[in-house]
Design a binder for these strands. Structure first.
Lengths: 214, 214
DNA sequence: TAGATTGTTAATCGATTAACAATC
DNA sequence: TAGATTGTTAATCGATTAACAATC
């Protein structure tokens, strides 16, 4: 069956597409014009079959014997993910992690721009992080409107995270990247992705323990 | 079929176990003594069937009509993951992210202790982060040995990440948490878990775009 | 042309869910 | 006891892999 293009790519495929994008970008920087499913697979530890199956979700074709053209492939992955336009991000929480995210240079490449950082702690508001100044929470909605922000990062401790989510929702944000360890309950229309650093460490410890056995 | 205990828990189950652990900890702080599979499921947006199936990998039993005893359940999950003992962590990269990780207080609770941070940039070495001082790379192996570190976090830019991995491997580290966007190639004996922040943002953007449709 | 690589189907594999007897 | 909840089996669902005809 041929896939309907542009709708409902399964989760595991989306995650691999982000890795293909990274690999393809590196490849294009090295000057190559064509890349095969086998080359993508080798560079990421996958099978070429998986790569071709995944790429078949895209509105894009390779060419027999040559593979996929690097530039167009990169463009169509970005377009499918929706990262071909710039997204504006606000950060809730100006602790160590929030400040590091605000100053992080790696977001620009992905098309993300931090446009505000907020904290309820008045000892932190007013302090500078690069070009940004930490603002009070009551200024969140105004900034979101003025800057057209569409994504919020939650970088507060677990117990404050649900409150931060609600503040973001009230301000009109519908996409949330949650760095806290808390599970967040949002409405249907909101999209929430978790970045669980401690959980990743725990997973790592399990893998170290079972290394070889599994 | 009854599961062999203590070996080879599938990846998706391990990831959910880290979430159960978080939920169960919260529950135990609220003073409850018993928790049912349905309560765990509700608090995390899963089905009770999945929870019971997952918990059947543990060497632990619930009791009909009451559920699972909170304290023992927490202990057995920690024991299965291997996080019941403290793990010592070194960080490679003292940029914004590395410094934030070094100063992050959330690791203590999980049983992780940062015992060193290293950078090849001599403008950064010698600077302080809390009780730690940024060290030169050539001191990595010595510190790992002296402090008995078993985990390394890679917080350097993508192009330097493979080099950082090799330095960690040479120093005897076999567990790596990779915050860079690069895909790392390690030997069979090494365990590598990726924390891909930009990829998580990309996944979020796709979900926002397809919200409702999928 | 011959050979390499795609796109797609079908088979396999694994994960999730439903159902229900056992049990407290 | 009656009712609630576990543990486990079997069914369903979805993801990955293998295979190969089509094609450049």
């Amino acid at each position: 069956m041929t896939h309907s293009k542009n709708i409902c790519i399964p989760d595991p495929v989306i995650r691999r597409l982000t890795r293909y994008l990274e690999a393809v970008r590196e490849y294009s920087e090295s000057g190559s014009e064509w890349i095969s499913s086998q080359e993508i697979a080798d560079s990421l530890g996958l099978t070429s079959s998986t790569v071709r199956q995944d790429l078949s979700y895209l509105d894009f074709s390779g060419i027999s014997k040559r593979g996929y053209q690097v530039g167009p492939l990169r463009d169509v992955i970005e377009n499918s993910l929706g990262t071909d336009s710039t997204h504006k991000v606000v950060i809730i929480g100006a602790g160590n992690l929030g400040r590091a995210l605000a100053a992080h240079s790696g977001f620009t490449r992905g098309g993300f721009a931090i446009c505000g950082i907020f904290d309820s702690d008045t000892r932190l508001t007013g302090t500078r992080i690069g070009a940004l100044k930490v603002r009070e929470m009551h200024r969140l909605a105004g900034t979101v409107r003025k800057k057209n922000a569409d994504i919020g990062m939650i970088a507060v401790p677990g117990p404050s995270a649900q409150k931060a989510l609600e503040d973001l929702l009230h301000a009109g944000i519908r996409g949330i990247l949650n760095f806290s360890s808390a599970h967040l309950n949002g409405p249907k229309g909101a999209s929430i992705v978790d970045v669980r650093i401690v959980a990743s460490l725990q997973e790592l410890v399990y893998r170290m323990k079972s290394s070889g056995k599994c």
